[in-house]
Design a protein around this nucleic acid. Structure first.
Lengths: 139, 139
DNA sequence: TCATCACTTTCCCTAACGGTTAATTAACCT
DNA sequence: AGGTTAATTAACCGTTAGGGAAAGTGATGA
C-alpha cells in the first residue's frame, strides 16, 4: 500500500472534486459516511472508497460509534502541503509571512479539536455541493 | 481535453515527485527539457510527457528558441491552490495572514518575471534531485 | 543537401482509478 | 432469533496514467 511518498499521496487525494467536497464538508464538523454521501449522485461504496483514499492520505480519521463511522479532518497532510508551498512563496509573491517558521516550530502538534459527540449528530451543511454538481469549492 | 476542473488538474499534476522536482528546478530559473531530464533516470520522452502534464495544468509555459523549448514556471495554478487552502487556514491554525485578501485583489495579475535569454543558458542547479532519487523536496 | 540535435508523437504495455452491483460484516432493535 | 441499518469488501468494467521503444518533426550547421 502507498509505495509513493506522503506528499504525492496527499496531492493525489486532493485531485478529485468529490474528495475535496468531502473535506469541505468535514471542515464544518464530523460526519458519517452516509452523511458525506448524501449530497452526491454516486453510490455509497464509491464514497466509502473516496473516504478510504482520504484516510490513506491521513486527511481523514474514522471513529466508531455503533454502526456509524464518523469521519473527521486531520490537519497534518494539509500542513505538509503548505510547507511544500512555502518553497514558492517568493515566486508567487504571496504573503506567507512567518508561515514556515510557524510550521517548523509546530511540527505535528495540531490544534486539538476534541469533542466526541454521543452520537454522530448531523451538522448543518451550508457550503455543501449540489446533488449533480459535487463542488463545494466556492465559499 | 481536460474535462475536469482546474484545481483537480493542478493537484493531479502535483501528485508526482518527478513533476514536483521539475517545478523545484524551474523555481531556480528557466530550463530546457533536456536540462530538466538530466537529473532523472527515465527516458526523455517520459520527461517530455511530464512537462506536458505540467503545461496542461498551466504550471509551466514553454517557449521556443531554435530547437530548444525553454520552460518556465507560471504562478497562477499554485496561487489557486493557496486560495483553496485558505478555506482550511483556521482549521490548520496556520498564519495565512492577509493572504486571501491579497489573492482577491490580485486575481490573475502575477509578478512579471520577464527576462528572455539569448539562448537557454543552463542555470546552476543546487537543490536538484539525485539521478535515482528524483526528489528535490527538502530545501 | 544532408546529418545532427532537441524534442515530440505514436504505439504498446501494465497498473491504477472511479464507478457499478452484489455480497458481507457488524451493531442495533425488537 | 430475525430483521434493519451502516458501511465495507469483492468482483467486474471502461478509462486513464506512466513507462519504454521507435518513428517523426523542425531548426542548425557543415
Amino acid at each position: 500500500m502507498s509505495r509513493v511518498d506522503h506528499l504525492s499521496t496527499t496531492f493525489a487525494a486532493l485531485a478529485d472534486p468529490t474528495r475535496r467536497a468531502i473535506l469541505a464538508r468535514l471542515a464544518d464538523g464530523e460526519a458519517t459516511v452516509g452523511e458525506l454521501a448524501q449530497p452526491f449522485d454516486v453510490s455509497l461504496p464509491a464514497i466509502s472508497k473516496h473516504v478510504k483514499v482520504l484516510q490513506n492520505a491521513g486527511l481523514v480519521e474514522q471513529g466508531r460509534q455503533a454502526q456509524w463511522r464518523p469521519c473527521r479532518l486531520r490537519p497534518e497532510p494539509l500542513r505538509e502541503v503548505v510547507a511544500w508551498m512555502t518553497r514558492y512563496r517568493e515566486f508567487l509573491g504571496v504573503s506567507f509571512d512567518r508561515l514556515d517558521g510557524y510550521l517548523a516550530e509546530l511540527q505535528g502538534a495540531g490544534p486539538q479539536h476534541n469533542d466526541v459527540p454521543e452520537r454522530p449528530a448531523a451538522a448543518d451543511h451550508r457550503d455543501v455541493p449540489e446533488k449533480t454538481e459535487p463542488n463545494g469549492e466556492t465559499p
